[in-house]
Structures are given as C-alpha cells and as structure tokens.
Design a protein around this nucleic acid. Structure first.
Lengths: 199, 199
DNA sequence: ATACTAAGCGGGGTAAAGTCCGGTTATCGT
DNA sequence: ACGATAACCGGACTTTACCCCGCTTAGTAT
C-alpha cells in the first residue's frame, strides 16, 4: 500500500540522499564549488560512485538538490511568513518584496546557482517549473494588468530576477561589493515592477 | 608596427581560428551540439588538441566563439540596417524591434546559446559586456525615463530577453512549436517595453 | 516468518575536458 | 637578409563526469 505518487522511496535511499546532500554542503563550504567533484563526494560520504550518480543524475543535479534544499526555508517565508513577503499585503507589494528577498537569496547562494548551469544538457536542469516563476505568475494574476500574456510575462520577470546573478554579473562583481550590488538590484527591481504594474 | 590593441595575432593563428570555427559549425550542424567534442574538433580540423584549447580555453569558449561569429551579422543589421531595427526610428520602437529580432536570433541559435553555459566557471564565459546589453543600455538612455538606474535596468531587460531561452524554456518547448513560442515571446517583450517606458 | 522481486548499491571502465612541455615557426630589430 | 625571441603547435598525460552490470538489501505477499 503506497500513499505517494512516487511509489515510496526506500528507507536506505532516503538516508543516503540526506547524507549526500549534507556532505556536499560541507564540501562546498570547505573546499569551494569546483573541488566538489563526484568522486570526492562519493569517497567522503563513504558511498559508491554509482550511488551518487543514481541520486543526482549529473553533477549539476547535486547543485540543483542543494538549491532545492536551501530554497525550502525561503519558500516557507513566502508562503506563510509575515507580510509583505508572506500573504496579507497587496500583490504588488508582495511582488516587490519577493524580488528583494530573492536577490539576497541568490547572492548568498550564488555558487550553488552557478553550479546548476550545465551546457551539455539541452533541457536546463531542474528548471522545469521553478517555484519562483509560479509565485510570480500567481501574484501577477492578482494584479489587474491589461491584456498581457501573464504566463510569458512571469517567465520574463523571473529571468530579470535570476539572470543578472546567474548569467551576467561576474563572481568579482558580486563578492567585491555584494552589498552594493544587492541594493542596486533590489532597488531596480522595485522600479521595474512599479513601471510594469502601472495602470 | 602594430595597429591593433591586441599586439597583432599571428597569421597562422588567425587562419587556424577561422578554420576551427568553420569546422565547429559544420560539426554542430552535422552531429549536434553534444557530439561536438574537443578531441573530435581537433582531429577533424587536422590540428592538435593543444591548439584548440589555446584558442578557446574551454569547451564553452567554442560555443562563445560560434555565438560571436553569428552575432556579427546580427549586429550589422542593428547598427546600420533599415529602421526600426537599425537607426532612424524612435528609441522605443527600436527597443521593441531589437527584442523581437533577438528572440528570433536566440531561438535559431539556441543550441549554441545553451552550449555557452558552463557551471564550472564562476565567471560566466564571454558575457563580459554583451553587445545586447550595451545596445539596450544605449536605447534606454535615449528614452526619457524618470529616476531609474539605467545600467541595472539594462541588465534586467537583457536577462528578460535571454533568460527564457537560455534558462527556462526546454528544448522541447522550443523545437516543438518554435514559431508559436517566438511569437508569444516577441509579443510579450513588446508589452513589457511599452509598460516600462510609459511616462 | 519466509521466499520473492524490484530497487538500490558499489566500484571498475570509458570518454571527454583540460594541462604541460619540448620542438617549431612567425615576427621584429638591425 | 638574418638571427633573436616570443608565440604557437602537437600530442602525451591527468583528472573527472558519467555508464554498466553483478551483487545486496528493503519491501511485499503468502
């Protein structure tokens, strides 16, 4: 008798996954992103290489898993934290607050974010239907915008939020003056949203 | 006597680079992006592997070179083609036309675009100061927007243009109904620009 | 409790990315 | 024209992502 869409994950598999994610996080903090190799992760966690690949599929998959993990706490704030990030504030203010928070989140986890990028996969990893995009789409639906294609607009705004940090700002730009970059991006996001949502 | 900022590239080196880019393009068309390997490129072009790496630094570098190459023709249209893409039209119309054209360009060259992504490099390859971003920045400067940070806004709009195709839309989304996706993205870009640039 | 089965596991194997260094060739000053 | 020098070339070498397949173990039905 199974009660989940995934036909139940085996106990040892779940244990191993948690252990691997934890070990990966340790290695990331300790050695940096590019010394986090599959072999090293397998050895350090005391598991076989095959296991690591079965869990994550690809190197980028590890970073995706780390990202999902970090994002869980963030989502918590968004779904049931205090306004304006959480529910309760008018949608436009929530949208602005969301962008501000997400910029900070992405700067903090920029090493992980970059790691999820993988040029060999034609379908970008794990970006099936990011929570970010869903949330933005929902908030856009609550704001009365004229005849706009809200699905596409949500994709574009998500990109405006993630793109600078994943694609266009170098590591130097970010670590040298992270605080300043964060302030400017947040400010500019607010401006962008205000402009887009004007009647 | 040298007349370029680069202290003159040696003739054979230039010849080899052109040959490599041409061969890479052939292989891309013939075999697809993920059979375009460094070894195969070296062998097929009749050069050594060391040469290939000296030229392009990294696998993503090849795709970057292919992209630059393809982009040259595109820039030509933008810098001196007929309006509204080329000069002569009001800046906002040029901005809309630019986005429309770029969406088409990116869909056409999506395989190359994806190839430029590389999760191992902390500084994204070749995205030093993309022409796209410069052009958008320039047009924004010609439109009178209130007190906006135009540099950051340009980055965000560039991301809104590139992000969907590089990060969020799967290969299936694009090849299945490329024409439809292109239409929607272009339409939505126009809407976005109109909203942003309203007084 | 026990046998059955499907999933998980491990580690060795392959191919591709990226590095290095000795030999070669193009450019520059005279 | 010619030698000095710096850049280029090639291919062997190392590291790492990713695959495969026989063995083990967790879940399930009797």
């Amino acid at each position: 008798m199974s009660w989940g869409t995934p036909p139940t994950e085996r106990a040892d598999a779940a244990r191993n996954r948690m252990h691997l994610v934890a070990t990966a996080r340790e290695m990331l903090a300790e050695l940096g992103a590019d010394r986090l190799t599959m072999d090293a992760l397998a050895e350090r966690s005391g598991l076989g290489k095959g296991t690591v690949f079965r869990r994550f599929g690809t190197r980028a998959g590890i970073f995706q898993a780390l990202m999902d993990d970090a994002e869980r706490a963030f989502q918590e704030q968004v779904l049931s934290g205090p306004p304006p990030l959480g529910p309760g504030a008018p949608p436009m203010e929530r949208l602005i607050a969301y962008g501000r928070a997400r910029v900070g989140f992405l700067i903090e986890h920029r090493e992980i974010g970059r790691g999820t990028l993988d040029g060999r996969q034609s379908v970008p990893v794990g970006v099936q239907m990011p929570v970010s995009r869903m949330h933005i789409r929902m908030l856009l639906g609550q704001i009365s915008l004229g005849s706009a294609n809200l699905d596409i607009l949500a994709i574009q705004l998500t990109a405006a939020l993630d793109g600078p940090l994943l694609l266009y700002l170098s590591a130097a730009d970010l670590s040298q003056a992270a605080a300043e970059a964060e302030r400017q991006l947040a400010e500019s996001w607010q401006d962008l949203v205000r402009r887009v949502c004007r009647p």
